[in-house]
Design a protein around this nucleic acid. Structure first.
Lengths: 219, 219
DNA sequence: AAAATATTTTAGATTAGCCTAAATTATATT
DNA sequence: AATATAATTTAGGCTAATCTAAAATATTTT
């Protein structure tokens, strides 16, 4: 089945709202896509006739098996392109997303499978997210937000959920990026701020708010 | 100025009809784009208001300086992607076009300039066509059809104008592809067929019709 | 130069994807 | 349970890009 770019964006967004496991609401999806609820309703009807999701008016919706497969295909393409941009074209991790967002809509299994091979079949993209294989299978990565990370354990920054400029400013200031190895030294119970250490540099303190948006993978 | 994919396709097609040098007609363009003359007229008006081409009703049209610059940008992207697909992803030269046709519409100078660099600033694509630089300049390649190639001179196949299945069948049979080095041994005046030799293999004969569609670059 | 033909444009529809405003249904509050 | 509020859908419009059929203009033929 062929989908338009717009249809693909909706399917992908539903998946990101965990629409393969739970009912998603019209407003949630509208907000994520920066569109209007009325537009979402229109598209839902179209995607329902294509059997990509189950949808009853006023009751929310979730992906069908077929829809989930589609979503994983789109995500596979997106993450492979992110890896390409990052590794081969030296994009910064905050530059990859927008371009990958466009590249992901080019459907050609020859292209994608060859790209996968060219990159050496990577299992994670530069943000630390797993890349589905051609059948949609992917490794579970046990990421966790930094504020839940055990004390005195080394971990690698794998993902940053909030990518606002303000957040990027803080990360840049502390020289925290994807792949940075760090250790949580102490937790202050008063405001839930954390003291962390990056390599042998002096320890720094970050707020709970920041810590919650930094995901790490213990090593 | 931002153009839609459709607008880009029109601009590129006008350029391919040499619309930077001469007046192009509505029907010509409609045929090349496999669309209807009425649709062409609609688009011409739009592109005229964007000052990408000069157009007087019933009088034909040609690219403005700005329009030509746009066309060269699109062609640059197309040919760089063709090079990538061919060199890095091992696409056959007849597989690259359709995918490059989609990739070319992604506008990001970071992407394109980094891709150019990654490929080592190639000056010709896998079909032997020159790749414009960021300013739109490109090398003139003195291609000529095989039937005009001087005798007993080595030349490299750089381009095939007719890419029909029948043509591909013949080329495949004789193992002629882009990059193949060959020599014209003899011209038969009776039917203008040619005897050619590829490396040390036995000489073969090809018809004038085939020879005219194979372009080569003498070395 | 008039008639016939070919080309091009206009007029009016269609589809996808979006929108606003109003109506409907569900949920929360009193 | 009735009412108020929030969420969702419907109704009706808009734009871009296409189409067909008819009208306008240009070109060719006689």
């Amino acid at each position: 089945m062929k989908l338009t770019s717009s249809e693909e964006n909706y399917i992908k967004a539903v998946y990101h709202l965990r629409g393969d496991q739970r009912l998603v609401s019209t407003n949630e999806l509208a907000e994520l896509l920066a569109t209007r609820p009325a537009s979402v309703t229109d598209m839902l009807k179209k995607l329902r006739t294509k059997k990509l999701l189950q949808y009853e008016r006023y009751q929310g919706f979730k992906l069908s098996a077929e829809g989930k497969k589609m979503a994983l295909g789109i995500i596979r393409r997106h993450r492979l392109w992110e890896s390409f941009l990052s590794e081969k074209l030296r994009f910064n991790w905050d530059q990859v997303h927008d371009v990958a967002e466009q590249l992901e809509h080019i459907r050609s299994s020859l292209l994608i499978d060859r790209l996968d091979e060219f990159l050496g079949f990577p299992r994670f993209d530069p943000h630390g997210d797993p890349i589905p294989d051609p059948q949609g299978k992917m490794q579970v990565s046990r990421h966790l937000p930094l504020d839940e990370c055990p004390l005195l354990t080394f971990a690698i920054v794998s993902h940053v959920t909030n990518q606002s400029n303000q957040m990027l400013e803080i990360l840049g200031h502390h020289r925290i990026a994807i792949g940075t190895k760090l250790e949580v030294r102490r937790k202050f119970h008063y405001d839930h701020s954390l003291e962390i250490r990056i390599r042998n540099q002096p320890a720094i303190v970050i707020s709970e708010q920041v810590a919650r948006n930094i995901h790490v993978k213990p090593v």
